[in-house]
Simulated assay, not measured.
Amino acid sequence: MQTLSWLSDDHLYNSVNRLLDIAEKSLKNSETQFNKNVLDPFSALFQISGFDISHEEWLIAEKTRQAQKSLQNHVGDFHQIILGKVDGWENLETGQIMDLVHKDRKIIAEIKNKYNTVKGSDLSGLYQAMENLVGYKHSSFKDFTAYYVTIIPRKPERINIPFTPSDKEKGVRFSINESIRLIDGASFYEIVTGDPDALFNLYKCLPKVIEDLKGKPMSLEIQNNLFQYFASAYGV
């Protein structure tokens, strides 16, 4: 039986395996590149002293932090790839103005992993790019709806509201345009799949998928802790 009703198991397992490979490479790179990176000796000193940890504990934590930072850059890509495999949706790949499109439904979307992935000063440019795409008469996306998707929202609640960042040139917010919207990950997954619990169902199946791929079971204690993090992020 297919794991998710809206995505083939081949696409699901391939997408998860890709991210696992990136995680492993990120950790290896943090080991091999550690001495090539310029470290902050003041931060190291005060972390070891202030946190009352050994140098070895600090070293492990610092290497993990560097690997984590590298991995997080790819988690947004994971969602983009997953959503781009749903019937009717197209992943526009890295380097394009937008990330996803559904031409028949006239929807385009920019996917970011977290609400603060894009700096506040850059949100103005994102809004203007969306406005040009959906409003310019010669645009291929004229009259589409553009979504700025933050998979992890600022607050644990669902949102689907007009996207009105501050215009950094004028110092005031852009005017409301109902075709340019800010939306959380759970709500956008519902738009894409038709399943109101799509994002949770994806998260819920990942431990089993990862176990199948790595051949190593994840304890129920770890899974329960991880589900609490999901509940905290999305208010479920």
Rank of each mutant, 00 (worst) to 15 (best):
L7V: 07
G185H: 02
G235T: 04
S175V: 06
T3V: 15
S175A: 09
D167Q: 03
S43R: 14
N113K: 00
I210P: 05
K119W: 07
K114D: 08
K214W: 02
H11G: 01
N35D: 11
H79A: 06
A198Y: 05
T3I: 14
Y234V: 04
A61N: 11
L71T: 06
W6P: 00
L126W: 12
N91M: 05
K170F: 09
E157N: 13
R158C: 09
V75P: 00
I183R: 05
V209G: 10
S43Y: 11
S139D: 07
L220M: 09
H74G: 00
P41A: 08
Q47L: 04
L100N: 07
V16N: 02
V101E: 14
S179N: 12
I161E: 10
L100Q: 01
L27V: 10
Y136S: 14
Q128H: 09
Y115H: 15
Q128S: 11
F227D: 07
Y147C: 07
H55V: 15
K208Y: 06
M98V: 14
N17A: 03
E190V: 09
W58H: 15
M1Y: 11
L220A: 10
S175H: 02
L4W: 01
A198D: 00
L39I: 15
N113L: 10
I176H: 04
P217A: 14
F230S: 01
G50I: 05
M1T: 15
D184M: 05
I111V: 15
N177Q: 12
N29H: 05
M130E: 00
K25Y: 01
N14H: 12
G95N: 04
S70E: 14
D143A: 11
P156V: 08
E169K: 13
E178L: 08
E178I: 12
S139E: 04
A23G: 00
K63C: 11
S49N: 08
L226G: 01
L126G: 03
H11F: 09
F200W: 13
L213M: 07
N201K: 14
S166R: 14
V38A: 06
F42M: 12
G171R: 00
N35S: 11
G185F: 03
Y147A: 13
Y189M: 04
A198R: 07
K170G: 10
S15F: 00
I152L: 09
E56P: 01
E110M: 04
W6V: 04
I191K: 06
P217K: 14
I183W: 07
D143W: 00
P162T: 14
T145I: 08
D195A: 04
D99L: 07
A146G: 15
D195N: 12
V16M: 02
N91D: 15
G235S: 04
D195I: 08
F188W: 08
H138D: 12
M218W: 02
E211Q: 13
N224E: 10
G84K: 02
T150D: 13
W58Y: 15
D184G: 02
N116H: 13
L92I: 01
A67T: 08
N14V: 02
L226D: 10
D21R: 06
S15H: 07
I107S: 08
A129F: 05
S219M: 09
I81M: 03
K208P: 00
D167C: 13
I81L: 05
L206V: 03
V86E: 02
E24I: 05
G171S: 04
S30C: 13
R154S: 15
H74L: 00
T3H: 03
V149L: 02
G171E: 02
Y203A: 12
N91A: 10
